[in-house]
Design a protein around this nucleic acid. Sequence first.
DNA 1: CTTCTCACA
DNA 2: TGTGAGGA
Length: 340
Amino acid sequence: MKIKEAASRLNTTPRTIRFYEEKGLIQPEKGENDYRYYNEADLWKLQTILALREVGMSTSKIKTTLQDENEVRKYLNMQRSALYEEWLEIKDMISTLDQMLEQPSFSQKDIFTLSNHLKDVKQKRKSWEDQWNFDSQAKDYDKSLKRSGFRFNVHEFYEEALGSAVGFVKPVEGETGLDIGIGTGNLAEKCFESGASMIGVDQSEEMLKVCGEKHPTIDTRHGHFLALPLMDKQVDFIVSSYALHHLTDEEKLLALQEMDRVLNDNGRIAIADLMFEDEEQKEAVMDQFEEEGNTEAIFAIRDEYYGLRSQLSGWFEQHGYRVEVKRLSDILHVVYAVKV
DNA sequence: CTTCTCACA
DNA sequence: TGTGAGGA
């Protein structure tokens, strides 16, 4: 089949097909006359190229995607999270513009403040990278849970924490739940045992792969706290365990806002994580570690962003949630919030 | 009808 | 990331 027929069959132009060839996406056979001849396999490939272009994937990304047929899903997943991130950015730009227009008297300063805030939010979303290298931890994560630290075990009461989160949320058959930072899926598993269908978000492709193999029924999606790959009000409840402490305190509040966006009316949120009660208790606990000379604990805590339970419940209450909390240890708490 | 190249946004 | 013109 010559190029024009191929083009019309695929609803594109010969010029475009040649362009893809130039970019190294496809190599059709050439006849004596130097004409390009396309076979069925070429058409299939062109079809996927066109489809990937249609969802906004760059030609260079498409090239790497097509290297391994089995990886197509993975790249589509990445593409989805990238598009959600763009969508959120545009939404933020629009609402900032709206706010600028709402200013009664146009003062340079207020506009600048708004634009700076917007820039800040964009920055935070973009800079969220895999600082903890979860990709390489993925395969051994479950094993590492069982191995305690020498003098400081962050996973003490791990099972209790997950159990308590699910106990708060009480998933019901037919509901859709979201687990953010799903990891290998231990918490989500307890949720879908009670009949809810689960969506799991993680920024690590490797984690998603391990999770997908362990729990094929979970809808695993690439994404992160600051840009959830979901539409507004799409889930009935949200759970998250041992994940929020990877975000700075400022980012934590943005993350709560993002959860609020995807959560349905009357939705529930349960967060089980390493955190302190409040500033006072944090100081007391850190002093205690200091006295005991427990440097292992101090380093571990300094290495991440253990937040304050009071900060989280404060945000929830300000935004119309009813809050319940449970303390499992000095540094392990569950925060439960219902949107009312 | 197809090819290629150059220029253009 | 494509598109249009123009010659062979």
